[in-house]
Design a binder for these strands. Structure first.
Lengths: 148, 148
DNA sequence: TATAATTAAGTTGTGCACAATTTAATTTAT
DNA sequence: ATAAATTAAATTGTGCACAACTTAATTATA
């Protein structure tokens, strides 16, 4: 028998890890009509807010690096959602822009947030507190991780 | 500009997704002395609680299937932490057991939970509430996902 | 008791995720 | 002005994660 602190059920990080995976599974049927994965959906969310953005800026917002984004963006370009082109002012940068198809997809996504809230089945107060703890943890860990 | 509900900052699921990744990054230096990844560490946690278990049972506890576990367990077998052998009573089952090395690793892990709590920098009350919401969400989504 | 159904692992193929490295462009400092 | 440092993407290699499928063993049923 393991020491109490090493028991799985006492591990808050395990519940984050497992909840994140169940959450992306929950999204799967909701994203079917857009024909994107959950990480691809996040890229669309960012570009719907602000179209035309460098890979770097996209990564800053999604906490992802070019090693993850470059192949993902290529797949999304292939499927017709966006375009990638070098910036003329700075040839190191790649500008990502939505295509008409990518922009139009926003309409098909408009009901997803409501379905998600519905599926989570959590009252507004708890949801708010929950999200606050998540964001706090995320930002705290991110600061901590990049400092080292 | 995107509809308000489609903004990234309003997405609770994004904060779960991103927090989970930052969390595994935080674990990385803590797991260095064990020379395991975070998912492998979870396997060890389960086996330290109850050594000798089928792949199925391990998967039930970690919310993982054989497609993920089989190759991971093979890597852990190669690195000397555990053994895999067919059950004589039921040849379909594979029993996973810790080696001496795997059992001894528990000592090296005993301080990890304290370091994690330290790194999260959250007061006990909030941590408790946070974990409760996580577990509730995890179980709710898991039930929901497997019903469909 | 054959055979159908179920169960347990394993396999295959795709898509992240990330560390480490490379390449090329731009900035900075000399 | 030029060498050194920095920055931005891309590349390489490893390890999950999971859907869909296969294989083999066990159990249920006609």
């Amino acid at each position: 028998m393991a020491e109490e602190h090493l028991k799985l059920e006492n591990q808050i990080c395990f519940s984050i890890y497992a909840a994140a995976r169940e959450m992306t599974k929950m999204y799967k049927p909701l994203l079917q009509k857009l024909d994107v994965t959950y990480p691809q959906y996040l890229v669309l969310l960012v570009l719907w807010e602000e179209d035309s953005m460098t890979v770097n800026e996209l990564g800053r917002r999604l906490y992802l690096d070019s090693g993850t984004l470059t192949p993902m963006l290529k797949r999304m370009e292939t499927s017709g959602l966006l375009e990638r082109k070098r910036s003329p002012e700075d040839e190191r940068r790649v500008i990502v822009t939505l295509t008409d198809q990518g922009r139009n997809a926003e309409k098909d996504a408009s009901d997803i947030p409501f379905q998600v809230i519905d599926h989570l089945a959590m009252d507004e107060a708890e949801l708010k507190q929950f999200k606050a703890s998540l964001v706090k943890t995320l930002e705290h860990l991110h600061d901590r991780n990049e400092k080292s």
